[in-house]
């Protein structure tokens, strides 16, 4: 464990909590893609299949449970909460994310560390996390609504990406057997897609602030 990875885990968790609290506080999920949140929940469930078989540390196990619970809570809120679900942009959130799931599954069956059930699903979750933001990117381009995608959420999501890239650089420089290629390359793709999301977020945020009536 290094400080970059710990900071990355913390900012990742904070970004999820910020989004969950925003949805719960405003009882609204307008502008948020349920499909992206479903993909994130699927990422954690398929990545942490080893929760009950491999014990690495208390921190590792506790964080796995927390990530699964918080990402599932967001999906539950958007699908089941009687007030929140009314504000879901169902007509705009139409990205066919099933193709992302199938594509990542095929890729994981081809490129993985070891051909075991757990390893294939681990690689699947790594690839899926990289592309999971696409439905949210498309919804943002269509709706331009950033009310619930607070600046803090976008900031912590970006910080998570930045810290993890620093973590991989640190591990590459300090460890003999660097074998995080799947995580590293997929993480770079994820960061590039995040940068694209950030660009559209900034454009939408600027347009919205221009639209504000002069107080």
């Amino acid at each position: 464990m290094n400080i970059f990875r710990f900071a990355g885990d913390m900012t990742h968790l904070i970004s999820i909590l910020v989004l969950l609290l925003k949805i719960y506080a405003t009882k609204s999920c307008a502008g948020i893609s349920l499909k992206t949140q479903e993909l994130y929940a699927l990422v954690f469930v398929t990545r942490y299949l080893d929760l009950f078989t491999d014990f690495i540390s208390v921190y590792n196990s506790v964080m796995k449970v927390v990530f699964i619970l918080t990402s599932s809570a967001i999906v539950w809120c958007m699908r089941r909460h009687r007030i929140v679900k009314r504000s879901y942009d169902q007509a705009l959130d139409t990205f066919r994310h099933l193709f992302l799931v199938l594509g990542c599954l095929v890729l994981a069956l081809i490129v993985h560390d070891k051909f075991t059930f757990q390893e294939v699903f681990w690689a699947f979750s790594i690839y899926l996390e990289a592309v999971a933001i696409l439905p949210q990117l498309v919804l943002l381009q269509r709706s331009g609504n950033v009310d619930n995608l607070t600046g803090q959420y976008v900031f912590f999501l970006g910080a998570y990406r930045a810290f993890y890239i620093l973590n991989w650089i640190y591990r590459y420089l300090t460890e003999q057997h660097f074998r995080l290629w799947i995580s590293c390359i997929s993480g770079l793709v994820q960061t590039a897609l995040y940068a694209d999301f950030f660009y559209y977020y900034y454009i939408s945020w600027k347009n919205n602030s221009k639209l504000q009536l002069p107080s």
């Binding site: 885990d9 990742h12 990545r47 590792n60 796995k64 990530f67 070891k114 390893e119 973590n167 057997h177």
Partner: peptide
């Protein structure tokens, strides 16, 4: 070795 397949990153 064993650690090759345990993923210690979240």
């Amino acid at each position: 070795t064993g650690d090759a397949c345990t993923h210690d990153e979240l």
